[in-house]
Design a protein around this nucleic acid. Sequence first.
DNA 1: TAGATTGTTAATCGATTAACAATC
DNA 2: TAGATTGTTAATCGATTAACAATC
Lengths: 208, 208
Amino acid sequence: MAKKQLTQSALERLPRYYQYVRDLREKSGSESVSSAALASFVGVDDTQVRKDLALIGVKGCPRVGYKSALVQKTICRVLGFDQPYRAIIVGIGQLGGALANYGAFALYGLQIAALFDNDPRQIGRTISGYAVRSSAEIAGFVAKTGVRLAIVTVPRRAAQEVAAMLVECGIDAIWNFSHTRLEVPAHVAVRNENLGVGLAELSYHLHR
Amino acid sequence: MAKKQLTQSALERLPRYYQYVRDLREKSGSESVSSAALASFVGVDDTQVRKDLALIGVKGCPRVGYKSALVQKTICRVLGFDQPYRAIIVGIGQLGGALANYGAFALYGLQIAALFDNDPRQIGRTISGYAVRSSAEIAGFVAKTGVRLAIVTVPRRAAQEVAAMLVECGIDAIWNFSHTRLEVPAHVAVRNENLGVGLAELSYHLHR
DNA sequence: TAGATTGTTAATCGATTAACAATC
DNA sequence: TAGATTGTTAATCGATTAACAATC
């Protein structure tokens, strides 16, 4: 689909460009954007921006800049934000509940398909319009709907077991918010969202 | 305090080593850990681990490995997790509420000091033992308690204004969960927690 | 001792930045 | 045209990896 494999670092910059261009168009309706403006927002060199945009096939106009609508649309397409995809959330504690309610996911093409928990006190609750279902139903739900992404917000000690079960069910992408690293087969994409990393940076700054 | 300035990438690896060693000691009580074991967990080269540990002054024993208690304690100290620090949370929506309840922060030395919101319907609510206060009280609270870190979970359009006010109050570290980049003076540390970056990676994988 | 692991220097790799020509 | 901005090659920089000696 994409012309070239994007590097990890490019993959981290693109959503930031996307955010900037989206905001820019909403606020000022500006039709073009320069690599220098994008660079200063994201905090990289302007050459970097031009390389990234060239990589995804966006051409600019010397003297003018890049068409902002084209930049937005192309990033959207390359990252797959224009082809809505669904996710289940497994583990409806504080964090899982917050994510179920989180409106901003729509900006990135993500829809929540269902919520699961194995605590009987949670099952049957309704959050943001979704009934919480028993984890025992996950396999059937995934088989029926073809959902491929799971957001894992279970406690640390349950995470590995849950991940193994999800992979068994056919899930091939996991967004992991539990505080542990997951072992999964190579074909499954895992993104670990470790809040400790963010805290390390801030704590180090505060105590220096 | 620290012997050398840590690079950004080292600062991202250290909390992962910390997590592994903490888990290891809890589960197996193992007294030593090899650079190879740490490397395979975090997904880096073992030479990298030895360099990182040398950088923070941890010495190992050839043939044996590193003392796990020492590794844990030293990382803890270098990152400042052993000197508890407090944060206020500004913006008590879904996400702010979830963070207020989030138990895992204690593992990283973080304590929540107070919650603030400017919605009259939120003010006075009690979450996780904390009463939600009016944002108008932030300046006084910061001056009185000396809190330096603020967790910002307000909507995007309010974020820049809130950040400016916090800096004015003396806050010098911001953990930003709003979907926008903040402009702050150079002495203020900002960590942007952009969920879009995580979604970009997963979405790209799913649509490839 | 023998062998496993650390510690450190050198080599490699990739990402970032600089320079400058091409272009509208 | 003149001038601003893109596009691209070359140079630099830093991080990662390889190699191997030191050590208990």
